[in-house]
Amino acid sequence: MNPLLEARGLNLRFGAVHALEDVSLDLYPGEVVGIVGESGSGKSSLLKVLAGMQPADAGSVAYTDAQGTAHDVLRISDAARRRLMRSEWGFVHQNARDALRMNVSAGGNVGERLMAAGSRHFGKIREEAAHWLTRVEIDTARMDDLPRTFSGGMQQRLQIARTLVTRPRLVFMDEPTGGLDVSVQAKLLDLIRSLVADLGLAVLLVTHDIAAARLLSHRIVVMRHGRIVEEGLTDRVLDDPQHPYTQLLVSSVLAA
């Protein structure tokens, strides 16, 4: 099987700071890879570079689409990148307010990607939006309400519905559970896990929450100072950490 996303030798500097140093990563179809590390370790920068939202100083990112065509993500045209973003990819932000249109109804938020992709049938758009709201456990009676009347957890679920409505193959998630209270986090993780399994999504999950990473990811990549210090299967990395930093990271998790 060929990787869906293939990153080689990524380098990125912000002045004197090395945000990424010689980072290479493969992501296979249907695979969930967790990227963990402390704040400033370069995990969000990595996600942005992989999604083509941030140019890298050196390296390459190759994405193979559903038709088997390879795209050079770092050198792709704006139009082609938008097309990928619209049809093949999804991006879930930490703060739902960054992604949602707060003055557009929940149904409109979910329908936007469908309309951007060319759907022009009001009834079908609504039907699809209702279906996705149900899947993320939002009452369809709230469909025509504005997201600002939603709780934080609902907003995050709405963002996920909005992202998944076009059935992307690859979803980038940047701290999807950040800023939510613990019980809501647990529910959301549960939801993401079942959706990912049902849809066979490939996910790149950036998080500093080791528990979330353990629950969702098949593989884990540990980053520090812009470098990948350790990677492997989730259980192996978390139960038998080799690198001193990983050991510190794992031991710092509070047991409930």
């Binding site: 557009v104 109804s105 149904g107 936007e112 309309m115 951007a116 009001f122």
Partner: peptide, 15 residues
């Protein structure tokens, strides 16, 4: 990329 305009029409019909 005119999906945004279509969203506005969608909202009109909803409201």
């Amino acid at each position: 990329d005119y999906g945004l305009m279509q969203v506005k029409l969608y909202e009109d019909i909803v409201q």
